[in-house]
Nucleic acid binder design. Sequence first.
DNA 1: ACCTGAACACCGTTCAAGT
DNA 2: ACCTGAACACCGTTCAAGT
Lengths: 229, 229
Amino acid sequence: MARASGDDRQREPLSRQEIVRSALALADSEGLDAVTVRRIAAEHGVTHMALYWHFRGKEQLLDGIAEYLFAQIEIPPAAGESWDRRLLFALSAMLAVLRPHPAAAQLTQGRVLSSDAGLRLTEQFLGILREAGFSGEQSAVIATQLFMSVIAFVTGHPGPSRLDDPEGYEAAARTRTALLGALDQARFPNVTAAAAPLARCTEDASYYDSGLELLAGGVRAMAARLPQP
Amino acid sequence: MARASGDDRQREPLSRQEIVRSALALADSEGLDAVTVRRIAAEHGVTHMALYWHFRGKEQLLDGIAEYLFAQIEIPPAAGESWDRRLLFALSAMLAVLRPHPAAAQLTQGRVLSSDAGLRLTEQFLGILREAGFSGEQSAVIATQLFMSVIAFVTGHPGPSRLDDPEGYEAAARTRTALLGALDQARFPNVTAAAAPLARCTEDASYYDSGLELLAGGVRAMAARLPQP
DNA sequence: ACCTGAACACCGTTCAAGT
DNA sequence: ACCTGAACACCGTTCAAGT
């Protein structure tokens, strides 16, 4: 990934895209703390001030990562489908994009309304919710809460990613399981009994299936209580 | 809040509690970035290395903040109540504690299972969910997702807190509303129509009421699909 | 037991300057 | 247009030392 500074004396100019992509790769492999102006610059064989020509500051660089993630979310067109199936598709599309980037997903949390792709996503969710019969205000509230929840499902995934570092992931999961299992059974009967699922429940697809069911079921329940038009 | 270094020549020794409390106050008033070993130390009229006697490092200090927050969550005893009402009480209790600390709440996200008070909370949620008929595995998954969602509802609250800085809050909300309202109405019909609720929906209690309804409704829907015992 | 002083490696940002 | 060099203020951490 790193571009040695010696092997290409005539480097082509950086682009915002390249910078954002290497920042995202850094977040994926070493976490958000590793996303540093200086380290990103080093990846490109450039001094760290070079990035300030492309971004006004680090905050704008992080905005760029969030925008990049939002832009990848493609909600499949499903014109003939019911609103609740379309909602499920939309939530799945978000999860599919964010899951590989548990560290960087954090950056999307406060940036939905300040990125173009985030606004496009919001627009689509509002459309689905309006179709379900919710008012503009209700749709705004529910869309925000769905975004926050989906993002949190992904960022809540602790430690190293299973995809990037499977053996590191395994070791961390085993350690957590052992710690939970060793707790006082009198004080924590349910925790000790469910030590393994608690420690590793975010690892497999069923975790996200359950999350989608929780959210979609909640929205359906709220829709069912709406006054009939 | 700051303790001048001159006014008490015989300072009583620091305690972890005091350090954690001033760190939390700093997060509340200026955000997580302001929570700095050096600034906390200055609040107490002490050099920054003094904190290293009380904490092994900054990470442990942040653990302390999370622990402190979890410890304040008191789920009311409600022995005779149905499981879904007790679930609602438990979620409300979490929200009540976390809402005043939108910045610091972020710290609780990955620390539920590594803090004593977080484990106590987990135990109580698992108890409620087991009573609803979910298996240990299902309860672990759902409890985790409920935690993540509630925390995200609070941390998603952008900008300055309404309680700590009402006029700053108002100004930020107005700016966001104006920005959303000025978007292209052809591309963003629903966003522009709901500009105000989108920009400020996290401000009032109904936002959190809606969030609780969403989550509780989702869990009820999942419980309703369980095979009858 | 509780805190200080000096030192270190690292960070984001500014500003003038180079090509 | 695109990048460098030097400088600055700030950060977390270590380690030996003080009381």
